Simulated assay, not measured.
Amino acid sequence: MSSFRNIILSAILLMFLSVNANCQTQKDNVSNSDVKVEKQKKKKKKKKKKKVKLPDIDLSHWKVTLPVTNDKGKPYEIEPPEIEDFASNEIAKPYMYIDSTKGAIVFHAMPTASKTRNTKYTRSELREQMVPGENNVNWTFKDGAYMKGKLAMDEVSRDDNGKYHRVIIMQIHGRLTNEQRDLIGEDDNNAPPILKIYWDKGKIRVKTKLLKNLNAQVPEILHEDAWDDDEGFNFEQEVGFSKFTLEVKVSDGKMVIILNGNEYKVYENIHMKKWGVFENYFKAGNYFQSRDEGSYAKVRYYELEVSH
């Protein structure tokens, strides 16, 4: 009888130990499950944080012109150092803003009453300032210059024929010195742009200037009507709405435009040599080429760098 009782007690003890072990295992499993869930939550948070991207663009040597007027009825501009805080500028927000999901600055332009001098079009466009806040310090071809941008067309409207509107996305603009301006009796320092790069129906198109009279000297050569437009050049590759890279290299008597590192257009001729008389500055962004009602364009810039 005693032996039977011992067997019963042993069985009960084993059952108790087994239940305890199962409970502990379940606790461990629950604990491990909680740890896994917590780790997954942390991973998700990390992934969400990684989605926030900022463009690789230093704006300390640029000012921007926006398609809206200031209190004097002129195009609204933001110069350094204020431009570095453009994202919090309420006036700038609709026309120049950060897309943190793509890591780009978006330049948005459409027809408005805000037109810069000598043009019928509006812009949301950067203007290089070698000395921040100063327009009177610029460069010549002899000085040399380099600009590289990584960008993409974000959105653009179509005309009545269903074709996309054109946008100038990069420029080299000429500038008269104060002495040259006074010499030819102009009331501003504006000179023609030696380079315009267009996003044109999904392709990249380049336009430059030709001197009409190759024997022209100062002061004749300083007048805008001394120069004519060339026929233009289209790169073969279609960029569409994809991201692409543009490089512009300038040296004495030479200008090179490079698309995606593999297509080149080289200008090395008498016109480039003669252009050496002018000062210049780079422009980049969205110089919208339409006055159609309801038309607009948005250009994304991911990277932009300039050197001299």
Rank of each mutant, 00 (worst) to 15 (best):
Y76F: 15
Y76M: 01
Y76N: 08
Y76A: 08
Y76Q: 08
I78N: 08
E79S: 14
E79K: 14
P80L: 09
P81K: 10
E82H: 10
E82S: 13
I83E: 13
E84P: 02
E84R: 09
E84N: 06
E84G: 04
D85H: 13
F86K: 03
S88M: 03
N89M: 10
N89S: 10
N89F: 12
E90H: 05
E90V: 12
E90S: 15
I91G: 00
A92K: 06
A92H: 10
A92W: 08
K93Q: 12
P94F: 02
P94S: 02
Y95T: 02
M96D: 01
Y97C: 04
I98C: 12
I98T: 14
I98K: 14
I98D: 11
G103I: 00
G103Y: 07
A104Q: 07
A104C: 15
A104D: 05
I105P: 04
V106C: 06
H108P: 03
H108L: 02
M110Y: 03
M110P: 02
M110I: 04
P111K: 08
T112P: 04
T112W: 02
T112I: 08
A113G: 00
A113R: 00
K115H: 08
K115I: 09
T116F: 05
T116N: 12
N118L: 12
N118P: 03
N118D: 13
T119H: 09
K120G: 05
K120I: 09
K120Y: 02
Y121T: 04
Y121K: 04
T122Y: 00
T122V: 09
R123S: 06
R123A: 04
S124Q: 08
E125P: 00
E125D: 07
E125Q: 11
L126R: 01
M130Q: 14
M130E: 13
V131F: 05
P132S: 13
G133H: 11
E134H: 07
N136V: 04
V137C: 03
V137G: 06
N138S: 10
N138M: 00
W139N: 03
T140I: 02
T140R: 15
F141M: 14
F141P: 00
F141L: 14
F141D: 07
K142L: 07
G144P: 03
Y146S: 07
Y146L: 09
Y146E: 06
Y146A: 07
M147N: 08
K148W: 00
K150R: 15
A152W: 10
A152E: 14
M153E: 04
D154P: 02
D154Q: 11
D154V: 10
E155D: 14
V156E: 08
V156T: 09
S157W: 07
S157H: 09
R158T: 15
D159R: 02
